[in-house]
């Protein structure tokens, strides 16, 4: 279990409708704000109050309503409030009208991961226990993220109420020391826990041929652009050095995501793009397309070269008659 840092924000989130009704989302405590939301003009105010209702700190969230297909408009409210120890409630108001008020417990929930195992059916089973210092506090919900060191952090579940999660291994980016983190939150206060490292196998690269498109019909006299990409199982783009283009079984280009095919013969063709580099296990994809001979109007007869003089008996030079002058 990891205790929340001593200095944290409380993330407050929800959606407010045109009628000023409010739908709360689960927030949490965090010592890092990934992206500070835009600041509003003061019409909307989010306040942290102490036991006596005195405002300790406030912030102005930006609330922008967007169209929703003819229905009532709504706006998302996201704000971060410094979690002063004396804070006991949070209040969202529009000018003098209070839209939402929620109680802030004195202590944060606690959570402990009890199990991280790969099951026989290639699932990861994660189980945890959680408790709230305030037995009368709001019910807990859980978020689970997967941490692949050096590759990123991937949310895999949100708003859980159960304390067990089964995740197919195939859906997780590979890592030798993958860990899972569980967030337990009552909506404002939260606690988190990080599991022991676990090995998650690497998955083949994801290879895509963007051009040509499947079933394309392409004129034979036009060169064809090949464009493709490969991504690893974490969604990161792989360097093209591992790409191999194959047309009808014959390699036509390597180490480039953009290549050119020319002098295509009419007929059906199968283009394969394979990833054979490091960074991800081999993978390939293929498309089939057709090259057609273009039906054009019949061109004029091909121009033959001037007939080569080839004569055993040279005769009249063409210009002779025209230049003949006779004087008697």
């Amino acid at each position: 279990m990891t205790s929340p840092p001593s200095h944290t924000w409380i993330r407050y989130a929800g959606r407010v409708w045109e009628d000023l009704s409010f739908e709360a989302e689960a927030g949490w405590q965090t010592d890092t704000v990934a992206r500070r939301p835009p600041r509003g003009d003061g019409t909307w105010v989010l306040e942290l109050l102490d036991e006596r209702g005195v405002v300790i700190v406030d912030t102005w969230p930006a609330v922008a309503f967007t169209a929703s297909g003819g229905r009532m408009q709504s706006a998302r409210v996201v704000a971060y409030l410094p979690a002063h120890p004396a804070g006991r409630s949070i209040r969202l108001r529009r000018r003098d009208f209070v839209v939402d008020t929620r109680t802030l417990t004195a202590a944060s929930p606690e959570v402990r991961i009890t199990e991280v195992e790969v099951t026989e059916d290639r699932h990861l089973r994660i189980a945890w226990e959680a408790s709230h210092a305030d037995p009368h506090g709001p019910p807990l919900s859980y978020r689970v993220v997967y941490i692949a060191p050096g590759r990123g952090v991937f949310p895999i579940a949100r708003d859980l109420t159960a304390t067990v999660l089964l995740v197919p291994v195939a859906r997780l980016p590979g890592s030798l020391e993958g860990r899972f983190a569980v967030l337990a939150t009552d909506g404002l206060r939260s606690g988190r826990a990080v599991s022991r490292p676990v090995r998650v196998p690497m998955h083949p690269a994801r290879v895509a041929i963007l051009e040509p498109r499947p079933a394309l019909a392409w004129p034979a006299d036009q060169p064809l652009t090949l464009r493709g990409v490969a991504h690893d199982d974490a969604g990161r783009r792989l360097d093209p050095v591992g790409l191999v283009w194959t047309l009808d079984g014959e390699p036509v280009a390597r180490e480039q995501h953009l290549a050119l095919l020319r002098d295509l013969r009419p007929g059906d063709h199968t283009l394969v793009l394979a990833w054979e580099g490091a960074g991800a296990p081999r993978a390939e994809t293929r498309v089939q397309f057709k090259v057609t001979r273009r039906e054009l109007p019949a061109p004029p007869e091909p121009v033959a070269p001037e007939p080569e003089p080839h004569r055993p008996t040279p005769t009249v030079a063409p210009q002779t008659t025209a230049t003949l002058r006779l004087k008697l």
Partner: peptide
């Protein structure tokens, strides 16, 4: 709109910001 909100959270990283201090490349 909730789906979009979640996409936004994924995009800006707030979906996992609470664990950012635990990861090496947040």
């Amino acid at each position: 709109s909730g789906v979009l909100d979640e996409l936004s959270d994924h995009h800006d990283g707030s979906a996992w910001e609470w664990i950012a201090s635990e990861v090496t490349s947040p």
